[in-house]
Write a protein that binds this DNA or RNA. Sequence first.
DNA 1: CTATCTGTTATATTATAAGTATAACAGATA
DNA 2: TATCTGTTATACTTATAATATAACAGATAG
Lengths: 127, 127
Amino acid sequence: MLIELDFESDIPIYKQLKNQIIEGIATKQVQPGDTLPSVRSLASDIGINLHTVNKVYGLLKQDEYIQIHRQKGAVINPQGIPEADDTFRSKLEQEMRPLIAESMCRGLDKHTLMQMCRQYFDDIQGE
Amino acid sequence: MLIELDFESDIPIYKQLKNQIIEGIATKQVQPGDTLPSVRSLASDIGINLHTVNKVYGLLKQDEYIQIHRQKGAVINPQGIPEADDTFRSKLEQEMRPLIAESMCRGLDKHTLMQMCRQYFDDIQGE
DNA sequence: CTATCTGTTATATTATAAGTATAACAGATA
DNA sequence: TATCTGTTATACTTATAATATAACAGATAG
């Protein structure tokens, strides 16, 4: 799984890294049971600090994307990722609404917007 | 237009405020030509600093949601909000993708996800 | 047993963002 | 002229992001 960070972006690199790992799981580039690189080697590979990677692994663990074992390192949750619950759904709505409101202001109608969402979905699934 | 801020949220209040004004435009609670309260009165009403409101107005002006005149204050863009351009579209994709990837990891299939998006859209349009 | 790998914790430092506080400036208008 | 507008400047506090060293504890390969 290729990690590409944009150090000029306004999105903090820990968030970029987290998102890319999650997208790697979504595209099945990494699957339940697979191991992720150690915090030190990944940090070294992509040229960032080990604490930044450690923070990301901590967040992914908190969201149950991965399990962390004291010698094997970080493992994609072997039971698979837990289903979307109410907490996730309300967090999703909280982040989705502003994007949709902005799109509506800028003249995107429902059909166009839906088509764009479908496209994003297919892009990820097809990778 | 009612503004409600959550000071405990992890979303900064300037972003909450910006989003709520944009949603107000999307729902047509405020329309092109309408004026927004002055930075001082709005700040005072919702109990925040005038610079925070000023920052939001500056961002909204930058995105061409509003125009700012030296005496009338902030006015919803009388020409309407500019159509979605490539810059907007790529920013939208950048923010949309991680949300969709997360949803896919958590077992939401395309149809379910599309239905949720449709729901969000209708919720906003119906307000 | 020991060297080496894991994640983990602690502490410190730097830089930037978020939010507030006062104050003053300049243009428009009643 | 007094009062409203946005604007600018300066300063301060707090939180977040990111880095840097260092050390600790468990597991394992040699």
